[in-house]
Amino acid sequence: MSGAADLVIETAGLTKRLGGRDVVNGIDLAVPRGSVFGFLGPNGSGKTTTIRILLGLASATSGDVRVLGESIPRALQEVLPRVGALVEGPGFYPFLSGTANLLRLDAADRYVSPSTRRQRVETALERVGLSQAAGKKVGRYSLGMKQRLGIANALLTHRDLIVLDEPTNGLDPQGTREVRHLVRSLTEEGTTVFVSSHLLTEVEQICSHAAVLSAGSLVAQGSLDELRRSGEPRIRVTTPDVPQTHDVLRRLGTTPDDDGATPGAHSVTALLPAGLAPDQVVRALVEADVRVNGFSVDQAGLEDLFVALTGEGFDVVQ
């Protein structure tokens, strides 16, 4: 394994067998230092299991894992102090306050200074907007507040890597925005952030890199631009002459998305016809006397790629 210096997480052929099937099937992750890495996949695709293995909570059936350049699980005790994590939802003692819970978890960490403990806990709580509720028992927290506390726990001290498993679960839109903000500020501090999510928009908004997991296998990986480029570009025509536009596009060899032509629609979208440049499409439209009020080319949203890679619908992959 070369180039480990630039990779914060690196796995080779990582496999986990549980109950006779491969929950994680030979995945090769490569998370560059300084990236915000989105780990995408539908529910049940093996994201959390992979994260558990990365953090030494579960053992791999086979394959190599390196985190921060060290082999896992061998160097776990040296690596984990530099890693903050929120895995599989927050876990706290309901009978203790938010502050007391963080103090407890911090006390378990032998690598941090106890003299700065209170200060660090306060700062972390402030960062996730929980200062007001710090003294309240966690049992009385809402799901979103627990989630925030979980994130605060990951921020107790400076980390080189922060792993956030479905960080926006239970958060309202305001909280989701705050998480986005937080992730950005973490990267500015030089922390690599590894975010797992089943929500594509979330990843699209905050990540620089992503990997897509489907049924335990890695089906795509790279920078967001690379991933987008692998999709096909789409065109959007704004026009009052919708039926004529449909005719022209069909003649060019592409099928408009809304074939039934919704009455009153003023735009048509379709895949860019193969082998044609956008300007050629515009010329064909104009020559057919279509009034073109607007024309744009969109790179395929990650959405299309995501759906193409992992399938559509609610079926949890078995």
Binding site: G56, L57, P81, V83, A85, V87, G91, Y93, L105, D109
Partner: peptide
């Protein structure tokens, strides 16, 4: 309570 995984990641051997 889910605190076990957080203790282990603190890390506690």
């Amino acid at each position: 309570t889910g605190t076990l995984r957080y203790l282990l990641m603190s890390p506690v051997a």
